[in-house]
């Protein structure tokens, strides 16, 4: 897998941003490069990249999160300087909160992030999310995220899944939808992501990226 220096992950609530950010960070770390994960989620109280602090530490990945993330205090305060993180790390993965509401936090850094060759902003889509089943709605949300964050998306990630009820057909049935979204958005498909335990054969042109599933409920960890 090839990643740019800065990978920003955006998309609809629950489209799988955190799981994708976690996989990308771990894959970068495995190459021996330094990587920082920025949990920029200001809207989500649980199921966020900050949950994986210990795993990141083991892999030598630096985690930067809002100071009160997972502390039970409901204040989305951010006390870090993105510029210094970008200087001190080979790679940076930014996990942005859901929808346009979550993308607002990115806006502070738009001057730095726009129009740079080493920055990519991926828009994650899931055909099986009710509000983004329709292609026009999917694009509309991307535009909302762009206008709120003042950063332009550069590529699409098709992460269509139905959680534990994802089968090979679930992924295959989404390829056409992802194609349509890319065509309408005038953006390239960067990856088709899916659970690596799934036995599914995906053509190279859809850029298959099998992933581990880290975001789980307690009873599914047994």
């Amino acid at each position: 897998m090839y990643f740019k220096k800065v990978t920003i992950i955006t998309g609809h609530y629950g489209c799988g941003k955190t799981n994708i950010a976690t996989n990308i960070a771990l894959d970068i770390a495995k190459t021996g490069k330094t990587c920082t994960v920025v949990d920029l989620d200001i809207v989500n109280p649980y199921f966020r990249t900050a949950d994986f602090k210990q795993m990141f530490e083991k892999m030598g990945i630096k985690l930067v999160a809002p100071i009160y993330a997972n502390t039970n205090l409901d204040i989305p305060a951010m006390n870090f300087n993105l510029t210094s993180i970008l200087i001190n790390s080979d790679y940076v993965v930014i996990d942005v909160g859901g929808d346009d509401a979550g993308a607002m936090a990115l806006g502070v850094h738009h001057d730095y992030l726009n129009n740079r060759d080493d920055v990519e902003m991926l828009y994650v889509i899931n055909k099986y999310r009710l509000l983004t089943e329709d292609i026009d709605n999917t694009i509309e949300l991307m535009r909302d995220i762009e206008s709120c964050s003042r950063v332009k998306c550069t590529g699409i990630v098709n992460n269509s899944n139905l959680g534990l009820e994802t089968y090979a057909e679930t992924v295959l049935d989404s390829l056409e939808y992802a194609d349509e979204v890319c065509k309408k958005a005038l953006l390239p498909l960067e990856f088709t992501t899916f659970n690596k335990d799934l036995k599914v054969d995906i053509e190279k042109k859809y850029k298959p990226y099998p992933m581990d599933i880290y975001v789980k409920t307690l009873w599914n960890m047994v």
Binding site: G14, Y128, L130, G163, E165
Partner: peptide
Amino acid sequence: MSNQSSPKKHLMKGNE
């Protein structure tokens, strides 16, 4: 196992 014959499903957050 296949999900083809089952009813149309959506992935949703509990609150949604």
